[in-house]
């Protein structure tokens, strides 16, 4: 994946909405070692990751060549069990960092009513050390 300015602005939706079920939250909360209530703050990565994977598939990039460089979430409201969330990831920038390419992304996560729940900003580092 060469640094390619044409990536910027492309939108990559997660393939399907994610229902925030008690079971899903319980598995996540157990894995990060905290109670399921309130929903762990980093839970939206489940959906953001699916959108990122859609991007990698579209660009034919192997996941194992990607390292997560940065992740920041800003929340409009807490996530709640029962939410049905959708995500669209947009590439906001590409740059070179030594031998690696750095792709900056923004992922908007919205509820079933279309209201913004949270925004995830991430960088994906491709090809470092290779």
């Amino acid at each position: 994946m060469p640094v390619d300015a044409t990536l910027v602005g492309r939108e990559h939706p997660a393939p399907a909405p994610l229902e925030v079920t008690p079971e899903r939250v319980a598995v996540f909360a157990r894995a990060v070692g905290q109670p399921a209530e309130p929903v762990p703050a980093t839970f939206p990565i489940v959906l953001a990751f699916e959108a990122m994977q859609a991007f990698l598939d579209a660009e034919q990039v192997d996941l194992h060549r990607i390292v997560h460089g940065e992740q920041r979430f800003a929340y409009e409201r807490p996530l709640r069990v029962g939410d049905v969330l959708s995500a669209v990831m947009t590439v906001t920038g590409v740059r070179s960092l030594g031998a690696a390419d750095v792709v900056a992304t923004a992922c908007e996560i919205r509820d079933a009513g279309g209201d913004l729940v949270c925004t995830g900003r991430a960088t994906l580092v491709h090809g470092a050390g290779q």
């Binding site: 905290q34 209530e37 997560h68 940065e70 992740q71 920041r72 979430f73 807490p78 960088t123």
Partner: peptide, 16 residues
């Protein structure tokens, strides 16, 4: 979560 008695999180992030 522990420090804030499970207060509502408005922002959370870092560079790795």
């Amino acid at each position: 979560r522990d420090w804030t008695d499970a207060a509502e999180v408005v922002e959370l992030g870092a560079k790795f």
